[in-house]
Design a protein around this nucleic acid. Structure first.
Lengths: 195, 195, 195, 195
DNA sequence: AATGAATGAGACTTCATTCAT
DNA sequence: AATGAATGAAGTCTCATTCAT
């Protein structure tokens, strides 16, 4: 009886979080009543507030579920081939972030109103920038101008973030593999080297 | 005080829109009660709904106030110098968009929930992409690979949009002139030409 | 210019009343905003309140437009034939009341809330009863029991009122010629005579 | 006072319905704010909307409380005496409907605006017509013309409905036993038989 | 006489949150 | 630990009515 509702169902708390993530992403934080979350999670309304005293605690908990992005650069670096390395990094980030696409987008939207969320997103952005730089340097050592690395990593992180967080509507400008190629090539050719 | 409501004061309707823009940008659309807008605009609560029957009409009206972005490419193109041309374009767009920074940011956030807003932003994005392409082609004719223009224009527009729409918190990664330079150089050097 | 909007149009005041009658009957008094009346009457909103300071004045004015129901019994009485006389009376009332069907129904509905209206309807009902009695007596003199006249006239007036005021939905039980026939026959045959 | 909310008090939900019935009947549906209902029921305003999400749900719930009118014809039929049978039926209906006089009247008034209500009233009317016919046929078998039964039942049902639904003001024409007698006699005497 | 901008009271409704059980 | 009834604050929106012109 203690686990009457379990079996292999995720725990009630887990179901609540999953429902919140889905509904927040669909309709926005403010437009999603906790009652609808309870309904979607198939738990009584009271339980939502039992686990998450304030509604915003749901958002905070969701932020904590953001998957870690730490990637072993070694796994994607193809020494001497920046383009291939970046392609590998894109694939790796995609795989790792695709699970949390809804979540990323939702956080992006609520970042303004919730400090928690904003900080989490900023940290995530910085993490990506650092990883990109590490990969570029590891792959391009000797063949690229270091002066370009910051610019390229910034653009790259921007593109990836945009693709995973902001651009969610089918009509949005797709974030495009050719641009990534463009950056890689530019680096290799030493664009900006003269700067 | 005798002429508090007349003289050089903007009209009540204008004050309402200005207050809405400010408050929406500060706290978000949902978190801003119309009553606070009325208060900030120094008009009675009823007048807000007299001019804007539904709250979302305020957003629609705000969208219509988005300044036109049509720029005469001729004004910024420096023939033969892509970097200078893009720098000119950035300056031009900055000047034109800086007035509506709050507005852009607010719209970006509400794009998910309001179709009007989403469409306006998408149109605006496309406009910028087209202008960038026109400038690049005009400035770089003969010296750049046309195959790169789309990639470069996409990245550039993305950067500009991001800078004007998303990055608003002082802690956000600043949108960076060096990246623009990087793109220009890459184009000139023919990055991606081999694709 | 004084009659700039006239021509053969009914006066603005008249148009307002007509619009009010139609809209009140369609949606009810409370559910009809004066603004919609103004719109339907093609007059500025201010004019409605200029002519009818309070909204309820519209109802009062409408009551005053109730057509007089005074019928010359002589016109419908067929001496010696009660059935024919009642049939004539029905036709006469129908002709006279059909113009005001909307109005009757509307008044019926609002009778509870507006004393004016209630009194007008009661007066109208009494008028009809009296007329029915007069017709029956004139037509049936000698051949019917006077004791029945009140009962018959009451039923008859009830049927007519119902038909003109309450039963407006197509699905409502139609008010039925056979019943009128039934009453006439009953009178002639002396139903209730033994009472 | 310690048990003000418990004991033999009807439940809060019941009190709300009772208050709504009373106030709607007194002032009409539109003119009764839910806040006044809450006040009359001695419950906080929020509770009214907790039980009845929309105000119109109150009406729907009230409709469902309409007492069933199914009467065992056997209980009122006096074989061979139509008049007595109809008198019995009137008494029976009166006893059964008198509790819901306010309710009936209120529903009648709102029938135009609320489809639910209209349908309920129409069904109720048909039920009464059928019962009247059954009683007449059972009581008058052999002694009345079947051709008259429909007319008579229609008139009778009309009178009863009117009496229970419309005529509520003391000044309204009373609904009158003599009319019922009149109908019974007419049936027995074969009024309309020649039709 | 006529107009429509302006006003503010108040209605319905939603919902996060509390609390007794 | 869990529940769902209960609460009341707050929001959006409608509208009759007033008033300056």
């Amino acid at each position: 009886m203690a686990r009457s509702k379990s079996g292999d169902d995720p725990s009630a708390k887990e179901r609540i979080l999953a429902a919140a993530e889905k509904l927040f992403a669909e309709s926005g934080f403010d437009a999603t009543p906790t009652s609808r979350i309870a309904e979607a999670a198939r738990v009584p309304k009271g339980l939502v507030h039992y686990y998450f005293r304030r509604k915003s605690d749901l958002l905070t908990a969701l932020v904590k579920r953001l998957p870690d992005q730490f990637i072993e650069p070694a796994n994607v670096v193809v020494p001497g081939d920046v383009a291939a390395s970046l392609r590998g990094l894109v694939a790796e980030l995609d795989a790792r972030l695709s699970d949390s696409r809804l979540l990323s987008h939702l956080l992006w939207r609520e970042a303004d109103t919730h400090k928690d969320v904003r900080e989490a997103l900023q940290a995530r952005f910085q993490t990506i920038v650092h990883q990109v730089k590490a990969v570029i340097i590891a792959a391009g050592a000797g063949s690229i101008a270091l002066a370009d690395v910051d610019s390229a990593a910034g653009l790259f992180a921007l593109a990836v973030s945009y693709r995973h967080s902001v651009a969610r509507h089918p009509e949005d400008p797709p974030m495009m593999d050719r641009e990534v190629e463009f950056i890689a090539d530019a680096l290799t050719l030493g664009a900006g080297a003269k700067t």
